[in-house]
Write a protein that binds this DNA or RNA. Sequence first.
DNA 1: CTGAAAGCGCTAACAA
DNA 2: TTGTTAGCGCTTTCAG
Lengths: 334, 334
Amino acid sequence: MARKQVSIKDVARRAKVSITTVSRVINKVPTVNKKNIERVEEAVLALKYRPNISAQRLASGSNNTIGLVMPGYPGIFHSFFAVEIIRGVGHACESLHLDMVFHITDGASPISVSYLGGIIFADVIENRRQVEDAVADGLPCLVINNVIQDIDVSYIGINNLKGGKIAAEYLASLGHKRIATITGNLKTQAGFDRFDGFMKGMDDAKLEVPKEYVFRGDYSRRSARQAAEYFFSMENRPTAIFAQSDDMALEVIAVAYEMGIRVPEDVSVIGFDDNPQALYGPVGLTTVRQPVFEMAEKSVRVLHEMISGKREEKLKIALDPELVVRDSCISFRT
Amino acid sequence: MARKQVSIKDVARRAKVSITTVSRVINKVPTVNKKNIERVEEAVLALKYRPNISAQRLASGSNNTIGLVMPGYPGIFHSFFAVEIIRGVGHACESLHLDMVFHITDGASPISVSYLGGIIFADVIENRRQVEDAVADGLPCLVINNVIQDIDVSYIGINNLKGGKIAAEYLASLGHKRIATITGNLKTQAGFDRFDGFMKGMDDAKLEVPKEYVFRGDYSRRSARQAAEYFFSMENRPTAIFAQSDDMALEVIAVAYEMGIRVPEDVSVIGFDDNPQALYGPVGLTTVRQPVFEMAEKSVRVLHEMISGKREEKLKIALDPELVVRDSCISFRT
DNA sequence: CTGAAAGCGCTAACAA
DNA sequence: TTGTTAGCGCTTTCAG
C-alpha cells in the first residue's frame, strides 16, 4: 500500500523556503543562493525526500520513459543479438537518465504507448503494424536492425547484405570452392539479407552453390546441429561452412569434433556476430562482426534527441559489418 | 517534442458529458448508462485519446510499475537463469497489466525507487544495501533466488542445498566414487549452497572429495572449459562430473568430445538448471531442475498483492529442485 | 535571487 | 446515474 510520501512541501517547510526554491534546487537551476541550496539539501536528506516522478512528468509535460520492444520469437533471449541490444539500450538509458520499459511482443497486441516518451523497435517481424501506429501517433520512434523503406520512420540498420558478401568473398579468397551455408531465420530481414549477400558474393566469385549446400536454419543451435550432421555426412562434403550466427557456428564446430572432423584442418567455419563466447572454444572463431551494441546505444541517443525536440529529420542509416579473422578458416588445399 | 495530447477534456466535450463520466468509462466503473458509454467510446476512438498515465498515477496515488533489479555481473545475460527470470517476470506483468522497468545494478548506485510501486530483486549479491533501503522505505519488495535471514523481507528462494545433494546422491547411487564438481559463482548464495549441498551429499554417501576434484567456476562456459581440460588431463580422472549449471555441463561435454572422451561411456556428466538447450546436444543432459520461471511468475503475483494491500504478511519460501534423468550419466563399471 | 499562483490531466469524494 | 469541486506533487510563468 502506498506509504505516505514526503512531498516537496515538507521539504520546503523544513528548509524554510518556498516549494519553488526546492524545485529549483532539485532541478539544479543555477539562480539559487548557496545558503538555500544547503538548507534544501539538508532537508532532502533528513526527510529522505524523493520527488514524485509522476508529478514531475505531469507538470513538466515531459516523459523520459522509452520503450524497447522486441519480437518474442522463441529463443530470442538465447541470441547474442538480443542480449546486446538490451545491454546497449540499457546502458545508454542509464547514462541519459531515461527509464526503459521492456516489452516483448508477438505483434498481435497493440503496445500501450500512452505513457512512453518514445519507442525503440528492435527488429520488425510480425509487428509492422505497431510501428505504423506509433508513427501515425506522432510518437518519436526508431527502428533498429532493420532498413525500413515503406514507412517514413527513423532507423539504424546493419548492412547484412554486405556482411554476407564479406563471408563469401573471404572463403572464396582462401581457395574454397565447396562452400555451404546455414541461414538464420529467413523471415527476418537480417537473415534474408545475410543469405542474399552470401549468394551474391558467391556469384561474384563465380562459384556455384548447389541447393544441398544451403540449409535453412533459424539461429538456434538445434538447427545448426541438424545442418552440420547433414553436411558432414554428405559424400561430397563442403570444405567451408558459413554459419549465419556465431552460436550456430559454435554448434557446427562442436558437432565436427564429435564426428572426428577437425576445424579448420578438415573444414573451415565462419560465423556472424562476433560473440565473445566464440573466443574460448577449441579454435578461435573467424566471423563477421556487426556493431550491435553500438547500434543500440546510438539509437537511444538519437531517440532522446527526437523526444527533446533537438532533432527533426529522420535518421536513416545502415552500419557496416567487418571481417574478424581468427583461426577457424584456412586456405583450401587438396 | 511532445505531441499535443488529447486530454480527457476533449473527449468529454465531444461526447457531451462531464470529464468524470469519461473517467468512469475509462476505469470501467459500472454506474454509467449505456448511451454515455457508447458516446464516450466513440469519442475516444475518434480522437485517439490515450489517458495520461502520469496524471492517473498522480491523481490516484497508485503505481503499477514494478522494478526488476538484477546484479550486473558479466555474462549475466548469457545465463539461462537470468533469461528465465526476465521471461517469467515479464510474462506475469503482462497478464496483470503491470509495467516493468528493468534495472541492472552493480550494487553501488542506489536505485531510483521513487516511481516504483514495488521491486523484485533477482538475487542479491553486492546490493544488499538496496534491499535494506527499499525495506526501510516501506516499499513493497520481494527477493527471489535467495533465502534472506537477516532482513525482514519477503523472498522466494530455491533450495539449492537440496539440489546439490540430489546430484551427489544420484551419482553415488550409480556407483561412482571419483566424482568431481565445477562450482558456480561462490559469491552467490545459489552457487555456495549448491556446492555445500553437494559436499554434504557426498559426505552422507561416505565419499571423499579431494580438493583437486573441486574446480571453482563462475557459471561461464570459459571456466567450464578450463575445468574440463584440467579434469580430463588428470592421471586419476574422475568418472563423473557435477557441473553446477547446464551451460557449464554442455561445455564439459564439448571438451570431452574434442579430447576423444565419450559421454556417458567414459565419464558421466550432470548439470543444474534444466536448460532446454541441453536437449539437443550429442547426448541428452541429466540435470537438476530448478523452477525459475515459476518462481519469477509467482514473485510478481505476490508483489502485486502486496502493492494492492491484499497481503500483509511476508512470504518466505524456498522451492524444491528435482532430478531430471536423461542420458549423460550411467552406472560406473570398472 | 525568490515566492505566489496557475495549471499539468486525472481521480475521488460529495452532492444533486 | 451524473456533474461539481477539490486536490495529487510538481514545474513554470510572472512579479517582486
